[in-house]
Design a protein around this nucleic acid. Structure first.
Lengths: 126, 126
DNA sequence: AAATCATATTCTTATAACGGAATATGCTTC
DNA sequence: GAAGCATATTCCGTTATAAGAATATGATTT
């Protein structure tokens, strides 16, 4: 059942945080590390988990990999992501993540702009 | 995180079916067996799982045990159960379960009425 | 109190998940 | 092509989950 696959993705705190951040737009892996404050392996593995199950998509831009929410989510996925968003608004961890994301945001405007030409020679996370 | 606990409850097909049925009102275990067509152990264990995590509550009425959704669900739980309901409407398994429930319903009106005095001497499931 | 019915628990086996350490891959720059 | 950076994968130990078989509990009827 697809619904079960979705819930399996949602039953880990790290993945919830990743999805919450992704709701704001595309993000590259190194920013996740900074925003969540979790080690690289952990982030990478959970992103892979989400990608394999179709919740997110990734695209390589030079040295970096940008992740974003699935472009064509099923009705069920849409509904559940919306529900998560609603819940996350009231939960401190998620709010903190978004706050940290905003601080970093200026330094990675090129990611959001989708303009790979502007990618710097070195990641300026942090 | 409470949200994670909720999603853990939701990431099993049997539990989703149980919750979908429970959205219609209180149900006793033997009816679940009939509606889902699953063995007693399976039903019982999944109900226990949901009870331990606060999604459902149970009450003994003579030989039978009646389950119902938590009386005071958290905001998060409410939101997610509503979301599940919305999704389930479109998924065949869940619709079939509700159809079977309706067929059985007349024989267990006493459960819904909450009138233990009317409990029959023998369960008339099926 | 013995038998019966409805439900719960225990035991076992198989499978999947998480996390961390170490290592590998893929680009880019020099 | 060697070095460096960002990301992914493999390996390992631990823990959680699911399902079925068998058994136990608790209430009711005879």
């Amino acid at each position: 059942m697809e619904l079960v696959k979705i819930y399996e993705c949602l039953c880990d705190p790290t993945r919830l945080r990743l999805l919450n951040v992704l709701a704001q737009g595309p993000v590259c892996v190194c920013h996740f590390q900074d925003v969540l404050g979790e080690p690289q392996v952990k982030i990478s593995k959970h992103l892979a988990y989400l990608r394999e199950r179709g919740l997110v998509e990734s695209e390589r831009q030079g040295n970096w990999v940008i992740y974003e929410l699935a472009a064509k989510p099923s009705r069920e996925l849409q509904a559940n992501l919306a529900c998560l968003q609603e819940c996350a608004q009231r939960i401190p961890v998620f709010k903190c993540d978004l706050a940290r994301l905003k601080k970093i945001e200026p330094s990675c405007a090129w990611v959001r702009a989708g303009d790979p030409g502007k990618a710097p020679g070195q990641c300026r996370c942090g």
